[in-house]
Design a protein around this nucleic acid. Structure first.
Length: 427
RNA sequence: GGAGAGGUGCGAGAGUGGCCGAAUCGGACUCACUGCUAAUGAGUUGACUUGGGAGACCGGGUCCGGGGGUUCAAAUCCCCCCCUCUCCGCCA
């Protein structure tokens, strides 16, 4: 949620920035209208309440003075007037609900230097690391699902039998590769991020306040008999951790990581771009989250991008850093860099991390604040990104490591974590 | 899951219908005293919102776990929910 004050105090500038994200000016204007209506209504309600409060204390004073008849008369008078105030309050609640609905549809403001653009096609490739196109000529590269099924480390058929399409079942070395990858990633980040094992099931209220539960975001699975939801990403738990708190300036920045399972409905998404480990309803990921002071946001963002890229470098996987243009930015982000790993078997770049600077967009809704040493209270900035999203990295490792005899050679850094340096399957 | 007790400001903790945004103690901060620290004394110290003001500030409204209700008036009474503690049951 953005600050309604921006609409009231600096409407043109705010509308201009929102327009870069493709927001219809009519919606922005509607928000301003409701914000103004809310203020006007508050003035009416407050005046009414002030009258009632004054009258009530007069009743008390008259009672104490023993002037019971005058007190009773005033009491009846106030009783009659109460309905008016209640009507004003009802109207205020209605306006606030409308305002809230409208504001919930406004995305975060993009950072000013985010490249202009309408869609994915206008995103900017900032750099490409370790990618040599010549390397991919002259031999056949297979998609990971073929390699993995042949080695017996991935069983799509039985996964479908248990749970349907877009679920994975890993076996033997495949399972160990997943486990090794997560331990590897957690160890890599251990010096700068505190490791958390959160509950994987959270209240609707918590997920709603991180912005992952709206009319437009129906990714999360819900438990049937409770208002509890499966984590769509560890970010929900890590950002939700401090909801409703006022932190001390000295506590910041907070840097957390969590290895969690993530569940996403991915409604209607099954198709050729979801084969194998490309997109799953359930996957495993190490998530990185930071809460920091506003003035540290940009620096923490770039550090987070570097942190998210480090596993790819250590694993020797070719990747590129893409800055999302204004029109392709995520709803709650002011700036996003995607990390994409090259998948030679699929022949595409696969997104393995999306690093977002969320500014105060989440912390305003979640009321995550900090107190300056001087005394003032402000919203923290939130940042998040995958420290390692296993399915696609798993896939890239399998595809890149394929040798002529069908086995898969692991990056040296992983061997100790997986327990072998080559995946040979069962044969 | 059953029975009981509780949830108040940064912390502890009082407050069972009006004089309570809230005693008291502690913490933190400011000033005074002091060679420094400590000790002592005085003072300040919640959030949100709305209006006035250039601003320091000043006025109004809301908030005592969350939501509803009763009443002229609710931290206080009633209902629902969440959480914590104790006992019982169950259990990895």
């Amino acid at each position: 949620m953005i600050d309604t004050r921006l609409l009231l105090d600096d409407f043109d500038e705010t509308a201009r920035r929102l327009a870069r994200k493709g927001v219809d000016i009519a919606l922005v204007d509607e928000c301003r209208r409701l914000a103004e209506a809310r203020r006007a209504q508050i003035r009416l309600v407050d005046a009414g309440r002030q009258e009632m409060n004054a009258g009530s204390s007069d009743v008390g004073a008259l009672m104490r003075a023993g002037r019971k008849e005058e007190a009773d008369a005033l009491r009846l008078d106030l009783s009659a007037r109460r309905a008016n105030v209640e009507a004003l309050e009802r109207e205020l609640r209605r306006v606030e609900a409308d305002l809230d609905d409208a504001m919930a549809r406004l995305p975060n403001l993009p950072a000013d230097d985010v490249p202009e653009g309408r869609s994915e096609d206008d995103n900017v490739i900032l750099r490409t690391v370790g990618y040599d196109p010549d390397r991919y000529g002259g031999r056949e590269w297979l998609p990971h699902w073929e390699i993995a099924e042949r080695l017996g480390i991935l069983d799509a058929e039985r996964a479908a039998k248990l749970s349907g399409t877009m679920f994975a079942l890993l076996k033997g070395d495949g399972a160990r590769l997943l486990r090794g990858l997560t331990a590897f990633a957690l160890d890599l980040h251990r010096d700068s991020y505190e490791e958390i094992v959160p509950p994987h099931v959270v209240r609707g209220e918590v997920i709603a306040k991180t912005g992952h539960l709206t009319k437009f975001d129906t990714q999360a699975y819900r438990l049937r008999d409770d208002d509890l939801w499966l984590l769509p990403t560890g970010e929900v738990a890590l950002v939700g951790l401090h909801q409703g708190e006022i932190l001390a300036e000295a506590d910041l920045p907070l840097r957390y990581m969590a290895y969690t399972t993530c569940w996403r409905r991915e409604a209607g998404a099954a198709g050729k771009e979801t084969r194998g480990m490309q997109r799953l309803h359930e996957f495993h990921k190490v998530e990185l989250v930071k809460l920091c002071k506003p003035e540290d946001g940009e620096a923490e963002f770039h550090a987070l991008v570097a942190d998210a890229a480090r596993p790819l470098e250590v694993l020797g996987l070719p990747y590129r850093v893409v800055e999302l243009c204004s029109g392709d930015l995520t709803f709650s982000a002011s700036r996003v860099y995607d990390l994409e790993v090259y998948s030679p078997g699929v022949g595409r770049w696969l997104e393995v991390s999306s690093i977002s600077l969320v500014t105060d967009f989440q912390s305003r809704r979640g009321q995550i604040r900090f107190r300056r040493d001087g005394g003032g209270v402000e919203f923290v900035y939130a940042l998040n990104g995958s420290g390692l999203a296993t399915p696609r990295v798993w896939a890239a490792i399998v595809e890149h490591g394929l040798t002529a005899d069908g086995t898969v050679v692991l990056p040296p850094a992983l061997a100790a974590y997986v327990g072998v340096d080559t995946l040979r399957g069962r044969a």
